[in-house]
Design a protein around this nucleic acid. Sequence first.
RNA 1: GCGCCCGUAGCUCAGCUGGAUAGAGCGUUGGUUUCCGGUACCAAAGGUCGUAGGUUCGAAUCCUAUCGGGCGCACCA
Length: 555
Amino acid sequence: MKQELERAVASSVKDLFDIKMAIELTRPDEQFGDYATNVALQLAKQIGQNPRQIAEAIRTHLLSLQGEALQKIEVAGPGFLNLTLSDRALIMAASEQAPKSLVGKVVVAEYSDPNPFKVLHAGHLYTSVVGDAIANLLQNAGATVHRVNFGGDVGLHVGKTIWAILNDLGGEIPDKLADIPESERSEWMAKCYVAGTNAYEDDETAKIKIIELNKQIYQINNEADHDSPLAQIYWTCRQWSYDYFDAFYARIGTKFEKYYPESSVAGLGLKTVQEQLEKGVFERSDGAVVFKGEPYSLHTRVFINHEGIPTYESKDVGLIMQKWVDYHFDRSVVITGNEQKQYMAVVLKAVEQFEPKLVAATSHLTHGLVKLVGGVKMSSRKGNILRAVDVLDAAASADQELTGHGSESTVLGAVKYAFLRVRMGGDIIYDPTESVSLEGNSGPYLQYAHARARSILAKAKVEGVEIKDLQPGERSLLRKISEFPEVIQQATTDLMPHYICTYLYELAQTFNRFYENNRVIGDDREPTRLNLVGKYAMTLKNGLNLLGIVAPERM
RNA sequence: GCGCCCGUAGCUCAGCUGGAUAGAGCGUUGGUUUCCGGUACCAAAGGUCGUAGGUUCGAAUCCUAUCGGGCGCACCA
């Protein structure tokens, strides 16, 4: 409906003034109508006429084009055109679906990116939630979406953990791993990481040993060693990490198709950078291989260090190339913390020199830190950083306190919504109590709104009645419902799921206002109103599902 | 020093491809009960949109400067 109207306005402008322009209709305040446009204001200068006169001319012309669909067109204020749909057109609009603009497209979505041998922290939970919602949006638009994960299975943090593991096992004795009960593996490894980190800082001999272990682990990877005792411990524990990640993702209702361990892309990255070094994209500097970012208002970064070892930069190059080899994507979305923004800009600029199409297809989104309200100081050295489970636990205990009986779907709904409702980029101040509340702008409020609507429907038989002759409250609700496809589309093109949150909350408010003043069951208009409640419940459910939040039938 | 991000009501945040009186939730104050899940609805109070300039018919939104906070700037990830 919106598109048709936009085309109609555009052709009015073309017919009247012989000017081609793209029209963007907006959703004004309800008092003004269903759609609005400021074309007349924009044209005023070009044409040199009074904007209100222009608006009047468009109005007349538009009525002749779209008389059926429009109940009225008004010229208001300095020259806005306010369009009000006929009931018939509004009813049609409310049944429309968001356009499937990405059918046939392949998208790779990379997010979460935890490191094996370390715990999942709050930031991992955040990207998992937001990344999942973004992936859902793209999928909803028809794309084939591949959710992938990247993480460091080599590097100093691995050396630290392995050092403590060896300490705990009493040496390079892989058989002793069998003594660790399955349920305690992830906890145990997390403890080992903390112990290793502390030892690295406090104990000079341990530090030397850790550095040595780190090199050995690189060797294990390079030589694909699966036999030596150390290698057996490394591979087993690495797998334990992936099992732990999988279990956590399953708990929050997401799933990754593939893990790209850093070790698996380092080779391709190194090879690529070396090739491009010869072609002049990279250059040597102080024994290292660097990309000079300054010509592009960026900074210089090292891709291969003076020992010939690929740095993180090269691994990211390898990752981009490997994703291309694996998927031949039309679009690639990468989500990381804000601190990687300028770093990634350099990597992408470097790759752009030899694979511009891959970079053109890539969007790098970044996010801030997750902090608990009240700002408890966390020391990563002691290992008491805010872990992913801490966030979930905080929500669970707030839920328990509020309701007396915890519910996992409420807890997940609460946390996910709290993360998703704000625009990505800034830090998240997470308030467990507020997130779990059934009052106000929260996930559980929307879940409850859905359950309530479903319970109305359960009490009566919904028949396929035609909606017509809308009363004001009914019209407001339907008008709000009709916005949904537009909101989805906007959220999808901007990769901003928070638009969905804002919308769903407004929708629930609109419904509650309607429901407060209009009886459904037992009213003369029961069939029509039940039909509206059905559409409303469906919209809420679809919206919540896009966000990765379950919409329960009852709660 | 250079660069990036952020600064909107007491708190947490929308609004930022420039437009009609700057919105919501929480909190505060006061209402509503013919109540289909009142875990709701209505209303009030509360804002120099960090500050100062500029562009524009029109700026929270664009530009410049400045203050405050966070982050990043070569062989870590």
